[in-house]
Design a protein around this nucleic acid. Structure first.
Lengths: 244, 244
DNA sequence: CGGAGAGTTGAACCGCGTCAACCCACGTGG
DNA sequence: CCACGTGGGTTGACGCGGTTCAACTCTCCG
């Protein structure tokens, strides 16, 4: 019943709640106001004041913070089905920037649309808050990775997490997934230098674990990678619908 | 009008919205069900299933994740006025543990209490969501620090952030603040070894910037510290009430 | 008086950053 | 058509920031 003809967000939320026809309809109605953005041009700059949020329907985006010395730290990636900028609706200024990594399609969602949808369908509200909580849990896991894992495990963990997230919306599997990121993106995500990212990738490739090449991540030894990363996907909370 | 006789949470939220008498009353009513916890014994273990949330009224708590190899990463501290475990109300399992650093007093808040309060006073709901967004922004800033700042700047930034947070509830100033943390807490927070934390603290002390000793943090050169850390408190969003 | 927790310091080591080449594929303009 | 620049990737040499191991101190507490 939930399949490829639904939006990625619908597919994702279905991992948490089984949505009724009415809820599906309300959800689809959030996807009016379609927008396109082109790769590389920031959608939102840090310091800018509050914006609408978006639901990403195709393409990849990263959210990052820039520092005075020019280095940047990527906080998270958004893939199809993810919300973007939900938090900055409440804080007075957006505390980070969003950059489309490829050309993207997104639906603009006003705070009022969201509140309206929440009022009609409380279970949908719960599902969306679940998605927000999950995003936060990913940031926390990311923090743990940078603080307490070495470069190899960090990379392995990151690729496994991305794979799981993409699988949830039908864009990945245990075989691998298409991935438009450069090694510079990986470096800014993992708190490494681009040079070291290259070395780590070589090492993972030569160990027969995973290949990152030509826009494609291929898992050669999924179990071995899980082992190296000590990857426990519990924090992604995507074991299947809990609410019936 | 908002002064020491109010709860720390009230003081904190007042930095965001000017609360009416009715709203103050609803807020105080959330502080029924008082609980005490003793230092060092976990309140919530990671992997445990969903719990109530708490409002911390006195003492300090840290939330952390433990890894298989025994290292731990502290994700955040909670000081008086902070919520604790709001997120784990929605995810199926708590994704981290909470440990009281000293003996604490907290009010247990059930999801139903919160929803009830939200329904009565929408502006209070906004204020609480503001607090949650702010907590998330702190985790993000923490991530940036670990990923892209060196040990000195990381330490300086952390101490400045704590100082600002405590000032908001009347427990700190530009002079300094009382601080029950050990150097091991700092190490697990900043992704450093305890040995290196000690060296960094010595260096900051010998530069005349800040002293961490005997449960007290003393700022000797606030401006110099801000400079070293490139500390920009915008993400704390505590410049004073926006909603009148 | 003994033990545990916290802090302090030195010496040796190493993971990762930095610098510097060099490669290839692509696009653009003369 | 080639000339050139630009962005991504690859590799080696070298050094620094931070870890690890180990020893020692002080204080608190039973």
């Amino acid at each position: 019943m939930i399949s490829a003809e639904h939006s990625p967000l619908t597919r994702k939320l279905s991992a948490f709640v089984a949505l009724s026809e009415v809820e599906l309809a309300v959800l689809e109605r959030l996807h009016q106001r379609r927008r396109s953005f082109i790769a590389g041009r920031d959608m939102v700059h840090q310091g800018q004041s509050a914006q609408a949020a978006y639901i990403l329907s195709s393409g990849w985006v990263c959210s990052y913070k820039l520092q005075a010395d020019g280095t940047r730290q990527i906080v998270d990636f958004q893939v199809p089905g993810d919300f973007l900028g939900l938090r900055s609706v409440l804080l007075r200024t957006s505390d980070h920037s969003f950059e489309p990594i490829v050309d993207i399609e997104a639906s603009e969602v006003l705070a009022s649309d969201l509140l309206d949808a929440f009022a009609r369908t409380p279970r949908l509200a719960t599902a969306i808050l679940w998605a927000a909580s999950r995003d936060e849990a990913m940031v926390v896991e990311h923090l743990v990775g940078i603080g307490r894992r070495d470069a190899d495990a960090r990379m392995a963990h990151f690729l496994l997490e991305l794979g799981s997230r993409l699988s949830l919306v039908g864009l990945g599997s245990r075989e691998g997934f298409d991935c438009p990121l450069t090694q510079y993106h990986l470096a800014d995500t993992l708190g490494l230098s681009a040079v070291h990212v290259n070395r780590v990738l070589r090492q993972l490739r030569e160990s027969g674990l995973v290949t990152f090449r030509d826009g494609r991540v291929t898992f050669h030894d999924y179990g071995g990678l899980v082992n190296l990363a000590e990857f426990d996907p519990a924090y992604l909370d995507q074991t299947g619908p809990l609410l019936k």
